[in-house]
Design a protein around this nucleic acid. Structure first.
Lengths: 195, 195
DNA sequence: TTGACATTAGAACGTGCGTTCTATATAAGT
DNA sequence: ACTTATATAGAACGCACGTTCTAATGTCAA
């Protein structure tokens, strides 16, 4: 029987552990993960992974998975289709959190109700990531208060004035009279199909 | 001067540290984080946070932020608008990774090209999360090979037959002759507005 | 067969970790 | 004023952690 103990299987074991436990395993735990019976063997493999750049040690000597290895692979585009072997052409690996939420401290999520932004591909039930403390630019989608209700609209700048436009012809464009209350700028939208 | 050393500030310091370092700090590091000069004070506060349910210790005694506290708050829906104080009504906190990617080991990302699913609110440039090893149900959006090209279509089941339908009237429905190559089922779609 | 190299096992070691103790300072309640 | 509770500081302790050493085993080529 050949021990399936190569770098890839070890890396996968570490990623799986980190996904579940949200921390790196101790060397004792890695003995079980790697199916070896000595911590020195763990040290042996860890050193190899560090040389390969898969692992890092931070200033305090704690292990860290390099880059954003705990996301899922971004393999290409739809036309290219599914990855042949799910191995090699994993050009990049991204974490949804890091990709979608640039400023976690000033962001929050809202669930979309209504169809005012259907033309922009934002549908009822979607979640939108809203960044507050950010001034909207022309063409951004903003969360704004209109007639005492919060809705999502395109933010349009024309000359020295601004107005709000829905991405749905059923709604009329709004030229705010006095002040314009902006709750934030939509940074991203997500939709879930499978439960 | 009053020390701003309450549970909330401590929790925020821990979350911020975890976001940056992808691990929990040691007690020595927490002395700096909390601006105290004794590890016993750290222990004192950690115990309080554990009682409050903000922190946990796993089986090996390692600290862990409870729940999914390292996401961003889901505060309600668009009609309700932005959170008044960004504190209290944080009903739930979700991580985009956990929310969107249920099966990380059998999922991958694709960038959408073309407009065949525009009717379903999936536009060019979006990212879709694809789950392989999953049989599609009627109405699911699937990644399928049609005429040697990979595209996204609705998976329709009719009687004992199946066919593929685009969410765009410009594309015709496809009744596969022989076999039907399915690369996976679309689990989620995301779109990013701000760069 | 022999040698070189890669991989595993086991044990010993020093250090930093989290814990726990005592003591002191501040704030609030009666 | 006196008590009680809350919060901080400092020091000491035991142990688990990661490191490192020696040695044995497996693998492959010459």
């Amino acid at each position: 029987m050949k021990k399936a103990r190569d770098m890839k299987s070890i890396e996968q074991a570490l990623v799986a552990f980190y996904r579940n436990q949200k921390r790196m395993p101790t060397y004792a735990e890695m003995m079980d993960l790697f199916e070896v019976r000595s911590k020195s063997v763990v040290s042996y493999w860890i050193e190899k992974l560090i040389e390969k750049g898969i692992l890092e040690k931070d200033a305090q000597g704690f292990l860290k998975l390099s880059g954003v290895s705990f996301g899922i692979p971004l393999v290409g585009n739809v036309a290219a289709g599914l990855p042949v072997s799910a191995e090699e052409n994993a050009h990049d690996v991204v974490s949804m959190d890091e990709y979608l939420v640039a400023r976690p401290d000033s962001s929050f999520l809202l669930r979309v109700t209504g169809d005012s932004m259907i033309g922009a591909g934002i549908m009822e039930g979607d979640l939108v990531v809203v960044e507050r403390d950010r001034q909207p630019k022309n063409g951004d989608i903003v969360l704004a208060e209109v007639d005492g209700e919060w809705t999502m609209k395109y933010f349009r700048r024309q000359g020295r004035g601004v107005f709000l436009e829905a991405a749905n012809p059923a709604y009329s464009t709004i030229h705010p009279q006095s002040e314009l209350k902006i709750g934030g700028v939509i940074a991203a939208s997500v939709r879930k199909y499978l439960m």
